[in-house]
Design a protein around this nucleic acid. Structure first.
Lengths: 195, 195
DNA sequence: AAAACTACTTGTCATAAGGCAAGAAATCAA
DNA sequence: TTGATTTCTTGCCTTATGACAAGTAGTTTT
């Protein structure tokens, strides 16, 4: 049987067989979100995660002044998830929002737990996924310290170019840790450099 | 049987029974490091992690100019680990160094894998640990964006006061994302505020 | 005990980014 | 299609932090 490439991509792992993949796929349900929809709101308990087949999603937190800071972007074939709330069973401090119309494969916490217990290689896969997420996060903190705002912008452009196409400047700015005025200037400067 | 509190602290989890804890404890070996020792060096493969019973440890990476940036401090009863190298089986880009004489309970990758396969609740425990680590990391990135250097310093003082006692200023400075001159001034300012 | 380091502080000056505000351009709503 | 709202740019000025360098104090080495 053939599964959506989003599923085969995300769950690709030596310990996961074709039969496993079938059980995994069956545990997912197709869901849609529309531009602007909040997939998760602070204070809620997260109860599922989403394999993103199409669209762009962002996570954001509020700082003390109530200003929202984008903490991450999720692109095609990535898992839209709030780990802390889902796995620590606590209310989330983050919000997750669709930045464009989205198609996802959702899996609920219960179904996930079953797979986690039943499928040998699934826990391994999970650990690997977590390790990668942790690594990515560390690199982000590091780049906040060692790179200039311009370089962080260039990295984002290199690694998630679709974000620059879809997300409004203010979300990108807060993600990069600068104001929108600054990002506007950075962008101008980069455009001139390019010539 | 009674185990070191470092062990009982770190492995405290509903899914882990007393019998489990015994197997877990048996898998650890006591090791010592001395001030300045490198526990892990960039380019090496990490093959173990360490439950820190006594002492202070830091992790650091090098930026493009070769300057070292402290990426984290490990205090008593925390796990000294380089997740990316240990679980993704790849050479590490980080260094881990003892900042004072240390006592640890070490567990090797093989022994860890066995526990992971044998003990039901251990995978759960691992997932929980990873989730917390991810959360902590996210909050760090966020604070690099939303807090001033002074506030980051105050947070560190609140959350890991022992770091300020033991680590030299330059390591603290690079961890906070400022130069040592700046940290020296911040510290002065904070001391004056305190009166 | 002299020499060599390392840790920390302080001064001067430079610079990246922020705060605020105005205005243009694009998008959305009625 | 007109008005309202959001998005983005730009200008002026301020500010936090960096770069560099000198100097003090403490520690380690020989």
């Amino acid at each position: 049987m053939v599964y959506p490439s989003t599923i085969t991509d995300i769950y690709a792992h030596p310990g996961i067989s074709d039969a496993d993949l079938e059980s995994i796929f069956r545990a997912h349900v197709k869901v849609f979100f529309y531009k602007g929809d909040l997939i998760l709101t602070e204070g809620q308990f997260s109860n599922a995660y989403y394999c993103l087949e199409k669209g762009l999603v962002r996570a954001f937190a509020r700082n003390i002044d109530g200003k929202d800071i984008t903490t991450g972007f999720f692109s095609k074939n990535e898992i839209v998830i709030e780990v802390a709330s889902l796995f620590l069973r606590q209310p989330t401090r983050e919000n997750i929002q669709a930045l464009s119309d989205c198609e996802c494969w959702m899996i609920g916490y219960e179904a996930f737990q079953e797979l986690f217990e039943k499928i040998e290689g699934f826990t391994e896969w999970g650990r690997t996924w977590m390790s990668r997420a942790l690594l990515a996060n560390k690199q982000r903190s590091l780049s906040m310290i060692t790179d200039s705002a311009t370089n962080r912008y260039l990295s984002l452009r290199r690694e998630q170019p679709e974000v620059l196409q879809v997300a409004p400047l203010k979300h990108i700015a807060s993600y990069l840790g600068v104001t929108d005025s600054s990002l506007s200037r950075i962008r101008k400067e980069v455009a001139q450099m390019g010539r």
